[in-house]
Amino acid sequence: MKISVYRYNPDTDTKPRMQDYEVKTFQGMMLRDALLEVKKQDESFSFRHSCGEGVCGSDGVNVNGRNVLACITPITELKEPIQVRPFPGRPVIRDLVVDMTQFYEQYRAVQPYLVRKDPLPEQEILQSPEDRDKLDGLYECILCGCCSTACPSFWWNPEKFHGPAALLQSWRFLADSRDQATEERLDALDGPYKLFRCHSIMNCVEVCPKGLNPTRAIGKIKDLMLDKGV
């Protein structure tokens, strides 16, 4: 099988290029396996990866125009020629490795942590199974960045628009019955960019490797804002 990979090393290259490799396939082969095979042939090829099972979120790449996690993408699902590029819209550090600084900054900006103002009980804070169910589809985010780097609004305003991954986490805490910072969270999202640059294009939903739905979460934040009259 032929696989074409984006190559750029700032130490040695003046501009990026696509480079072809011939890799042997096997049953159950994932895109990550193919990239590891490329690495075996050419150790100068760099990409991030770690757990190999879709939970650490390291190996997000763009293949044939779509953002995926390489380790859970079977190569049989990909049309040849397979073209692997770095995430769109992010500065390339080297080969498939991109600079995710802004993505993480936007994540940190939504105060992604539980805020509790009441004195803490000696045991657990009680939460009904129904309230806990509201966190399903939210807390599972692995911060791979597939969604935000597929989002045109994030491409245009990565320094101002939080992007789908961060907003999903914003809703994860707004939706948590234990959290006590709803007002502050909503106030902080005010303005034309942070939240409202989402135009429901839904690329995020399309590409999320964990099947999560940031667009719906963003809609819920907007609904809550209306409810609260912010």
Partner: peptide, 20 residues
Amino acid sequence: TVYELEHAGVPFSRLDNGKI
């Protein structure tokens, strides 16, 4: 330790009585 984690926000699965 587990109570501290829960207070920190870990989304533990729950029983009908609201406990972990």
